[in-house]
Design a protein around this nucleic acid. Structure first.
Lengths: 257, 257
DNA sequence: GCGTACGAACACTAAAAATGTTCGAATCGA
DNA sequence: TCGATTCGAACATTTTTAGTGTTCGTACGC
């Protein structure tokens, strides 16, 4: 009598949601509500602890993330996969054969890497995740920027990264971002990340921003650049129409995947 | 009636051996001799084609590698795994906690990365394979050199790589090599690779060379440096004793794993 | 044109991952 | 200290996945 339990990642997602909503979850309660054994819930919570999302307490776990703080990469990677894939598809279609592309770190751009891997391009990914994906591509000429590799996200940052980017010129830079401020600024997690994004924009002939609709109005620490200065913006149908209309009026090529 | 077929990698290895010996293999014959279905042999050959080792012809496949040419990375990766693991273990024991280590590309050094991943070190791998392994280490501070990423080996080469290395100083550089000439020169596949190895040696306080015994007397194109100038050399019991004795006389710390 | 090799599609097996269960030890609160 | 509860190791079970074998229609080379 094994119930058709929901998939593992979905269950973990529910636990994260409950953590953010209530600040804590109880093992016994969660086991009943999610239709899983208590042992399974404990193992799920172990994962969250390992990823720094929660701290274990007797009977359950409590939230560790600050309000508004971003989820670790491994958790974001399984969220809204379908939307990201559609966006990535549109972005990939913007890239011509043989182009030199710089690929920012993040989950949407990682999905773009998965699309580009079958293509013939020169690619420089800003994260090890994307690099691993692209390294399997027979037609991909792979370049890596130097620098420090941040845990989890596996994004390259630091002076070496900036120097590597400055030494090259790309046809297209595909950026992701963690949010767009209400004032229309593209935002990054921190200054190091913002510096890398700015360097990418400086070294690329054309700039493409890939972001799902949920990013609009979500603030963050560091300003990268004004949204309206991008050449192309690819998003999905959940993006606020008024913002998109404004961008189009500014001459931005806005595409809804 | 499923025979306890030999392991897949072993079967592919036999096919490669036959290819190098006879220049070609036949599907029907190989299926009988290796005790596998023809379809399985075909699938194996597909792999070899994908890796550039063979070309498919009707009824079988023919060799594509030149005499003496090195096997692709994915093939070497499964050869002499035990010896490599032992060597890697000894190399890892040479590394102190918190040290900054540069890790050359290659299969032996990749095994070293697998050993180091549980340690607390700063590591800069010269190949994406090792980078992927090390990125899983909670205690590993990971740096990447910039540069072009060669297919297969996924080794970083080029001016950006040299510049990245030159910007840093390591406590230890762990090098691999593709052969040691009869005159006692450590050799590399090509000039680009040799340049990277030389840069590593320049930027490191201590140099460690990891090589299995089969490398001795095997020539290659590009000279890296004299064998006797390394601080530590880690090899296995199949290395020629006379060479090792000579190195010890020169003051090299020779370890046999 | 004939026989052979090919490869897609499906069946089967084995190995691995995920989940559930049991039970003794550890922890908490009274 | 005692009782109740939670924990997690060890094992059982299930599901998934990767690998292999088989069949059969198609295409290819001689």
């Amino acid at each position: 009598m094994y119930a058709l339990g929901m998939e593992a990642s979905e269950r973990v997602g529910q636990l994260v949601e409950a953590l953010r909503r209530d600040g804590r979850v109880e093992v016994a309660r969660a086991a009943v509500e999610l239709g899983a054994a208590e042992m399974t819930i404990r193992r799920d919570l172990d994962q969250l602890v390992e990823r720094g999302v929660a701290r274990r307490v007797r009977g359950g776990a409590v939230n560790l993330l600050m309000r508004g703080e971003e989820l670790p990469f491994a958790m974001r990677e399984v969220e809204a996969v379908e939307a990201k894939r559609r966006i990535a598809q549109v972005v990939a279609e913007l890239i011509g054969d043989g182009e030199a592309v710089a690929l920012d770190s993040g989950t949407t751009t990682l999905e773009t890497a998965r699309t580009l891997v079958t293509r013939r391009v020169t690619a420089m990914p800003l994260s090890l995740h994307a690099a691993t994906v692209l390294s399997a591509g027979a037609g991909v000429r792979l370049m890596m920027p130097g620098g420090e590799c941040r845990p989890g996200e596996l994004a390259m940052v630091g002076p070496l990264t900036l120097a590597s980017i400055a030494a090259l010129r790309f046809d297209t830079a595909v950026l992701g971002c963690c949010g767009v401020s209400p004032e229309g600024h593209v935002m990054a997690h921190d200054l190091g990340d913002a510096a890398v994004k700015q360097a990418l924009l400086t070294s690329a002939r054309r700039s493409v921003l890939a972001l799902d609709g949920a990013k609009f109005g979500r603030g963050a620490l560091a300003v990268v650049r004004e949204l309206s200065t991008f050449d192309v913006i690819v998003t999905d149908a959940s993006a606020p129409a008024s913002v998109l209309a404004g961008l189009r009026a500014d001459g931005v090529d806005v595409r809804v995947a």
